[in-house]
Simulated scan of single mutants.
Amino acid sequence: MTVLGLYQPGDSLAHRTPAGVKLLVLFCAVTVVLVLGTLWVAVGGVVVSALLYPLCGVRARYVWRMLRPLLPFLALIVGFQVLTGDPWAAVRTCAVLGLAVLLSGLVTLTTQVSTMLALFERLAAPLRHLGVRPDRLALVLALTIRAIPMVTVAWQTSREAYLARGLRGRPHLMVVPVVVGLVRSAEAMGEAMTARGLD
């Protein structure tokens, strides 16, 4: 499963490492940086995380792709901290966030979605005693992941139709077609699951 289009095939150590170990390393690395709380440890962590990308066989451009969505939030943090008179705290906070995003991105880029779902199903196994079915929990997670590109495609299709009609300045007109498209996709998915005996 590569529905998000993020997994990058490879044979590096990161690709061969089990998903559970990678998540544990991610948790420990971010926790250590937060506990130490020093500026240079946080900045060093970001640099090391960025260098791990090419070392793990992932193109360096993905470093920018991972950090770009974070930039507006970082700008707000920097602005607030500068106004309160603590610019070093802004740098430290931004570095910690950058570290977490880069390491999370590396886990995503080197782990197949099916492998991650299998891990979550195993982790949810103890919930079986509470009446929760781990396989259904993994299915819900898989459907959630599948919905992300589905929403993106529906929005892009609606936007293209909006622009093709020469409409400008009324983006709210795209909302109804997007919702209708998503409802139809959900109905088709539900029918497919029913046909396969999933209730």
Rank of each mutant, 00 (worst) to 15 (best):
residue 139 L to H: 02
residue 139 L to W: 03
residue 140 V to M: 13
residue 142 A to G: 05
residue 143 L to G: 06
residue 144 T to V: 09
residue 145 I to E: 00
residue 145 I to Q: 00
residue 145 I to K: 00
residue 147 A to C: 11
residue 148 I to A: 11
residue 148 I to R: 05
residue 149 P to Y: 04
residue 149 P to L: 01
residue 150 M to W: 07
residue 150 M to T: 15
residue 151 V to I: 15
residue 151 V to K: 10
residue 151 V to H: 09
residue 152 T to Q: 15
residue 152 T to D: 15
residue 153 V to I: 13
residue 153 V to R: 13
residue 154 A to K: 05
residue 155 W to M: 11
residue 157 T to L: 06
residue 157 T to K: 04
residue 157 T to S: 04
residue 157 T to G: 01
residue 158 S to Q: 04
residue 158 S to C: 04
residue 160 E to S: 02
residue 161 A to N: 13
residue 162 Y to H: 13
residue 162 Y to F: 15
residue 162 Y to R: 07
residue 163 L to F: 11
residue 163 L to Y: 08
residue 163 L to D: 09
residue 164 A to L: 13
residue 164 A to F: 05
residue 165 R to F: 02
residue 165 R to E: 11
residue 166 G to E: 07
residue 166 G to H: 07
residue 166 G to S: 07
residue 166 G to T: 08
residue 168 R to C: 06
residue 168 R to G: 11
residue 169 G to A: 13
residue 169 G to R: 12
residue 169 G to T: 06
residue 170 R to V: 13
residue 170 R to S: 12
residue 171 P to R: 09
residue 171 P to Y: 10
residue 171 P to W: 06
residue 172 H to D: 15
residue 172 H to M: 10
residue 172 H to F: 10
residue 172 H to N: 10
residue 173 L to V: 11
residue 173 L to S: 09
residue 173 L to H: 12
residue 173 L to Q: 15
residue 174 M to K: 13
residue 174 M to R: 15
residue 175 V to P: 08
residue 175 V to A: 11
residue 175 V to L: 14
residue 176 V to M: 14
residue 176 V to S: 13
residue 176 V to H: 14
residue 176 V to T: 15
residue 177 P to S: 03
residue 177 P to N: 03
residue 177 P to W: 01
residue 178 V to H: 03
residue 178 V to C: 09
residue 178 V to E: 01
residue 178 V to T: 14
residue 179 V to N: 00
residue 180 V to S: 04
residue 180 V to T: 12
residue 181 G to R: 10
residue 181 G to A: 14
residue 182 L to N: 02
residue 182 L to A: 05
residue 184 R to T: 11
residue 184 R to P: 02
residue 184 R to N: 14
residue 184 R to V: 10
residue 185 S to F: 05
residue 186 A to L: 09
residue 186 A to T: 10
residue 186 A to H: 04
residue 187 E to N: 01
residue 188 A to D: 09
residue 188 A to I: 00
residue 189 M to I: 13
residue 189 M to H: 08
residue 189 M to V: 14
residue 190 G to W: 01
residue 190 G to C: 00
residue 190 G to A: 12
residue 191 E to L: 12
residue 191 E to Q: 10
residue 191 E to D: 15
residue 191 E to S: 08
residue 192 A to D: 14
residue 192 A to E: 13
residue 192 A to M: 12
residue 193 M to F: 15
residue 193 M to Y: 14
residue 193 M to W: 12
residue 193 M to C: 13
